[in-house]
Amino acid sequence: MNAPSPARPGGTHPGDTALAARLRREIDGEVLFDAASRGRYSTDASIYQIEPLGVVIPRTEEAARTALAIAMGERVPVLPRGAGSSQCGQTVGAALVIDDSKYLNRLLEVDAAERRAVVQPGVVLDALNAQLRPHGLWFPVDVSTSAQATLGGMAGNNSCGSRSIAYGNMVHNVLAIDALTAAGERWRFGPLHERAGPPAYLELVQRLGALYEREKAEIAARFP
């Protein structure tokens, strides 16, 4: 299924040279706005095909933050992307694609005693498990595309796998996520008792808590 990519608010369009030039000036990373690259990133493992505005491959977290800030200033939608192994089209869209899989793909920390690891979003599941194996550990969300799927994409997709009945989905195996908001702020989404962050984050937590209190009887009655 092919879909044309309309001009975005402010006149941005696929292959926009002004946006590409600004990104190249201001970020540490690869900026791919040529037709061939846009064509490669217009598909994933699904049947869908949508041409992106362009692609940024940041080398650092700060580069990703800068790309996000530029996109916000230019009123350009952003689409984070890992391996593109989704079969439902989550990683294609008329947006600025930010691909974390090439450089932001490291295992940062392992605490074997607590059975906890800290990873960057682009780390591939099989690569993670290979590094966990010497510690007697493995990450149990075993998707069929484990040789390609990244942990960031799996988290965004709430992936499961053949052992999910025993071990749960991503939501049951992720303790916290350090994420960049559309405003470029870094927020930690984790246990509710860790209520620390900027005012906008605390307001969001409060609103979600109020929503739960209002709907908890209905949730208990109907879920799962």
Rank of each mutant, 00 (worst) to 15 (best):
R116I: 14
N2S: 15
R186C: 11
E62K: 15
A63P: 13
R116V: 15
D178I: 11
G93M: 11
H13M: 00
A36P: 01
I177C: 03
Y41A: 09
T43R: 15
L19E: 00
V174Q: 03
S162W: 07
D126L: 04
R195E: 02
L137A: 04
G156I: 11
A94C: 15
V143R: 06
R115K: 14
E215I: 00
Q87R: 13
A7D: 05
A179D: 02
L96P: 14
Y167F: 02
E26H: 05
A71N: 05
G29I: 11
W187G: 05
A94D: 15
R133E: 15
A166L: 14
T60H: 14
G54I: 12
G15M: 11
I70F: 10
T181E: 00
I177K: 02
H13E: 08
S46P: 09
G84W: 03
S164P: 01
R207G: 00
G89Y: 07
K216R: 08
L53W: 01
S101Q: 14
V76I: 09
R25N: 08
R188V: 14
P140Y: 07
R40I: 12
S159W: 02
R25C: 10
D34C: 06
E114W: 05
L175K: 01
I177F: 02
R116N: 01
P140I: 01
A3Y: 09
D142K: 06
P191C: 00
T150V: 02
A210S: 12
H13V: 02
N169A: 09
E203D: 09
R207W: 00
A36Q: 10
S37Q: 09
P134C: 04
R115W: 02
L211T: 12
A83K: 05
V171S: 12
G82D: 10
